[in-house]
């Protein structure tokens, strides 16, 4: 379990992390979501004991990271944004070094290294020099490093940056698998990624946690069905005039035609008003078949704007 209390980090006048508190329970996957410079990496660096906080406490399984750093650090694996690998070492050599520095008992090292290589799928590159590996493999070697000694908590800073789509999916599966046994904190600036793997999401902006909830609640609270992309079969001008009879649909904008005989429209209602039924009623009444209709996913940026505007500041 990771407990963070009133964490603050100041660099001179600049406040990188501003009074953050949270707990991550055992077996929970917590995601930090936020734009660059929000304080995600700084928070992780403090939680892992790489840098110290200006104020506040970090407690890992009952051990304070400042008072008992060695005890606390035994329970933490850290994969920073750049995997901390030595280019001039071979993969096996590197993992052996990591096992030693993480104080894995001598008798267990070989077996643990083999097991971890198996689970992150790097067994076939054991004897290669790390500097010759691709970004994806380096990331996996970095993850193997973080898993070494099976720490109770694994902290990952943007683990999927720079990976190809297949590797991203593999990485997500791996994180989910790890989440069954370990407490995991990961950061990302991609909403879909966080919602795919995390039990709980914390949105961080300007060093503050501005929202913390399950991904479902977070996005359902933010997508109100007030903006829909609809593909309707029929003539554009007739459809648009039909829509005018339904005041719930405030605006309808043509978004080109991607299918013969049909047009794409983006319809918007008042905020907090679900216009899906109105769209159906409108099209049904005039007998224009709806070919597809989907809610426009809010991008992270829009969610940010929404959440931060709710807090009264719109600068971000």
């Amino acid at each position: 379990m990771i407990e963070v209390k009133n964490l603050t980090k100041r660099y001179g006048q600049h406040c990188a992390v501003d009074n953050i508190s949270f707990t991550a329970e055992d077996g929970e996957i917590v995601g930090f979501l936020g734009p660059n410079g929000a304080g995600k990496t700084t928070t992780m660096n403090i939680v892992t004991g790489y840098i110290s906080a200006t104020e506040g406490d970090v407690i890992i399984n009952g051990a304070d990271i400042l008072a008992e750093p060695e005890k606390a650090k035994r329970d933490i694996g850290y994969l920073p944004d750049m995997p901390p690998v030595y280019g001039e070492m071979r993969v096996d050599e590197y993992l052996r070094f990591v096992a030693e520095i993480k104080k894995v008992k001598a008798g267990q090292r070989t077996q643990m290294i083999e097991d971890i290589k198996e689970s992150v799928k790097i067994a076939d590159i054991s004897s290669r020099l790390i500097k010759n590996l691709s970004k994806g493999y380096r990331q996996r070697v970095g993850l193997a490093q973080a898993m070494m000694g099976y720490p109770k908590a694994i902290i990952m800073d943007e683990p999927t940056v720079g990976l190809d789509p297949k590797q991203i999916i593999e990485m997500r599966d791996l994180v989910k698998k790890l989440g069954k046994k370990h407490t995991i904190i990961l950061s990302s600036h991609i909403l879909s990624e966080v919602s795919a793997v995390c039990d709980r999401v914390m949105i961080i902006s300007k060093g503050k946690i501005i929202a913390s909830d399950t991904p479902e609640k977070l996005s359902s609270g933010l997508t109100h069905g007030h903006q829909m992309a609809v593909r309707v079969k029929g003539e554009a001008s007739k459809i648009l005039s039909a829509i005018e009879e339904f005041p719930l649909i405030k605006t309808a904008k043509e978004d080109g035609s991607h299918e013969p005989g049909a047009i794409d429209l983006i319809m918007t209602g008042e905020e907090d008003v679900d216009i899906r039924e109105a769209i159906f009623a409108c099209m049904a009444k005039n007998n224009y078949p709806i070919l597809s209709m989907k809610s426009l996913d809010l991008s992270l940026e829009e969610i940010f704007l929404q959440i931060t505007s709710g807090e009264g500041s719109r600068e971000s």
């Binding site: 005890k71 850290y78 520095i101």
Partner: peptide, 14 residues
């Protein structure tokens, strides 16, 4: 430079 100090300084070593 290689940022491997993040590994050694977050390991259980003084």
């Amino acid at each position: 430079r290689q940022k491997t100090d993040q590994l050694i300084f977050t390991s259980p070593v003084t």
